[in-house]
């Protein structure tokens, strides 16, 4: 890669044979992966089954995996493959062959990974905020303006303004884990 802008991921280790580390990983990725599976098969119960199966598969591979990004690649790829499999076998969508074709492309996969990963990181960070700030941030992300938020939560607009500012600062500190992973050569 001789691109001018090159971003490198720093290897962050993970030991999935340690039950605690495996559970932490499961907790962080279960819901986003279910949402990711829904983009393929559109059914919550099947999404749950697929994701659970893939975590068992990941656990069986635990000794081959050294880094967090390997574990992530592995599980996103296997959830995609299982979902596509499921999709082509289900009678209901037989008629929508074109739709299956579209979903089987690499670019559909990478778009969905980016989409759900972005929201996963964001949800993770917002969950760590204190209650009031979390409410404000969730409303703001829903597209509400400060006066609208103030009305919904029955607090002053100034209050919303300052809390929002504080929330952004807090979000930054909890996203700091990700700074560490990112390195820029410009």
């Amino acid at each position: 890669m001789e691109k001018k802008n090159c971003i490198m991921i720093e290897p962050v280790g993970i030991d999935l044979s340690d039950m605690q580390e495996f559970q932490d990983f499961f907790e962080r990725y279960y819901t986003p992966l279910c949402v990711f599976a829904i983009q393929y098969i559109g059914n919550e119960a099947i999404a749950n089954d697929i994701v659970q199966d893939c975590f068992v598969k990941l656990w069986k591979q635990r000794n081959q995996i050294l880094y967090v990004h390997q574990a992530k690649s592995f599980i996103y790829t296997s959830v995609k493959n299982r979902s596509l499999n499921e999709l082509s076998h289900s009678q209901v969508v037989q008629n929508y062959a074109a739709k299956v074709q579209e979903k089987a492309t690499e670019s559909y996969f990478s778009d969905k990974v980016i989409e759900e990963e972005t929201y996963r990181i964001l949800t993770d960070a917002i969950d760590k905020l204190p209650k009031r700030m979390r409410e404000i941030m969730l409303l703001a992300l829903d597209g509400k303006s400060n006066p609208e938020i103030a009305k919904t939560l029955s607090v002053s607009v100034e209050n919303v303004h300052t809390l929002k500012k504080k929330a952004y600062v807090k979000l930054r500190t909890s996203l700091k884990d990700y700074y560490y992973i990112l390195f820029l050569f410009l």
């Binding site: 690649s73 972005t118 929201y119 990181i121 964001l122 990112l182």
Partner: peptide, 20 residues
């Protein structure tokens, strides 16, 4: 390919938090 997707997601999430 995938690591690139992960990196873009991180930049995106931090962009949404006005943190870039």
């Amino acid at each position: 390919m995938m690591t690139n997707a992960f990196l873009i997601s991180q930049l995106m999430a931090r962009y949404l938090c006005r943190d870039l």
